[in-house]
Every structure is written in C-alpha cells, then in structure tokens.
C-alpha cells in the first residue's frame, strides 16, 4: 500500500495511544511492507506526544514509594552471561555444552522459572496489599474524623458563578482534618480543578484539590492540616489543575462554622 495522508493520520492516532479499530490492520500491514516516512513519523509523533506532558508540574513522590518499589523487586537474579565473539568451532562447542548442560539441569531451570514466577506473584501481592492498606487508612481517617467528639459541621453555600452549589465540611479540630461533601458543582474545563481552602488567622491555607463527578457531587478528604492553628472558615475555588498556593480563581463555595 503506497504511502498517503491517511497513513500519516493513523500514525498520529497511534502515537497518541488511540485504538485504530479496523484501520489498525491496514496500518500494521503498511508498516510491515516498509514505509520509512511512517516509521519516522511514528517516532517523531511519539516524542511530540510526550511534549504534551512536559509543561505539567512535577510531583515529588513520597520517599516511601521508592522504598516500597525497591523492596518489591525481590531477590535479584544474576544476568545471563553475554554471548562471546569466539570462533565458529568454539561457539559450536559452547552450544553443545550449553545444550548438554540444559538437559542436565532442566529440572533446575524449571524450578528457577517457578521461583521467578512466584517472585513476580509475590511482588504483585505486595503491591495489592499496599493498595488495600492505603484504602483502609483512608477509611480509618474518615471514621476518625466523623466519630470524633469535637466534629463540627460547617455549611457551605454557593457563591459567585455557582449560586446553586452547596456543601458541608465535617471538621475535627483534634484530627486536624476535614471531610467535604458537595453537590451541584458545575463541570470544569480541562486544566481546572476545585481547591479547598481553610482559613486560619484570616489567611487561606490550601487543603487539597479535587474533581466533582458527572452529577456535580464530590466527597473529599482534606490534607493533614496540623500546621493550621484553628480553622475559622472554609471555601472552595476554581484553580488550575494541581492547585495553587494562593486562591486565584472564583470562589464557588464558602461558609462559616455553625
């Protein structure tokens, strides 16, 4: 199939990670037949796609994440020896020796494969356990806030561009955490997120970013606000995705302790 613009479009979609559907087999055949233009385009389009992510802010992972990753690797097996560039007879001899060795130690290899498979499963299980542990920690935190004897319910009313929005913050001064439940929030354009603020000593402190679901509802648990001396008020603004250190967008929810 001769090169044409349609294949360039398919290269663009593939580089963006989109499914090509029925056209996928056409494009695969086109590449198999050898099209230097599309091969080069695919590489360049992949790099260009990566450029879409470049302006995003970096987020430093928690140090524990890396430790968990390295722990989950399990015992490290030695690399396979590199092939030498020995002469043909020596290589044949080596192949024969390897074959003989393979026969002799086939049981051992099978056991090694089983061990590697078990290690892989174990790593997956460790990851699952970590995920479950995080979920459990979140649930524990919610229970701790809601069951706290000092929990206060703060009503938030719609403001500015979203008068119909409404919400409640369950705030525990002891836990220094709040749980926001909101409804009737409007969908935001790509690149925007809602950000919760807690006001202490008259100043806003960022308490985390969140998205509303398609029905405009949100359930969000604030960050640990131990550094906040005493919460006086809460508000929600619209900010660039990822949040801002100070409010920059319109206030859509605000309230005071009841």
């Amino acid at each position: 199939m001769a090169h044409n613009e349609r294949f360039e479009e398919l290269a663009a979609l593939q580089a963006l990670g989109l499914s090509l559907g029925e056209e996928g087999s056409d494009f695969a055949r086109h590449l198999q037949e050898g099209c230097p233009v599309c091969e080069a385009l695919l590489i360049d389009f992949r790099e260009a796609s990566a450029a879409l992510a470049a302006p995003l802010g970096k987020i430093t992972p928690a140090p524990a994440s890396k430790e968990r990753l390295l722990r989950s690797l399990g015992p490290v097996s030695l690399p396979e020896p590199k092939r030498s560039s020995a002469s043909l007879p020596r290589r044949l001899l080596s192949v024969a020796a390897l074959f003989l060795l393979a026969v002799l130690v086939s049981d051992d290899l099978r056991l090694r494969r089983q061990r590697e498979e078990l290690q892989s499963r174990a790593a997956q299980l460790v990851a699952n356990v970590e995920s479950a542990r995080r979920d459990l920690a979140r649930r524990d935190l919610r229970v701790r806030v809601l069951a706290s004897d000092d929990v206060a319910i703060l009503l938030l009313g719609g403001q500015g561009p979203q008068p119909a929005a409404r919400g409640k913050v369950f705030w525990s001064e002891k836990a220094k955490r709040g749980i926001l439940v909101a409804a009737a929030l409007e969908p935001l354009p790509a690149g925007k997120q809602y950000e919760l603020w807690v006001f202490a000593q008259g100043k806003p402190v960022p308490a985390g970013v969140f998205d509303a679901d398609e029905s405009g509802r949100a359930l969000f648990e604030s960050a640990d606000l131990s550094a906040v001396p005493a919460a006086q008020n809460f508000a929600v603004t619209v900010e660039p995705r990822g949040g801002a250190p100070q409010p920059t967008g319109p206030i859509v929810l605000a309230g005071k302790p009841s």
């Binding site: 802010g57 970096k58 987020i59 430093t60 992972p61 928690a62 979140r138 919610r142 308490a207 985390g208 970013v209 679901d213 398609e214 029905s215 509802r217 949100a218 359930l219 969000f220 648990e221 604030s222 960050a223 990822g242 949040g243 250190p245």
Partner: peptide, 17 residues
Amino acid sequence: AARAGLIGVDTLPDRAD
C-alpha cells in the same frame, strides 16, 4: 462508578519540591 455517583477519596497531591 463516577456515573453512579461514587467518588474515590484520596489523599492530597504533594507539592512539587
């Protein structure tokens, strides 16, 4: 899940160093 009104609750993003 989101269509059904269920929302995952997660911890806050860390700020970039």
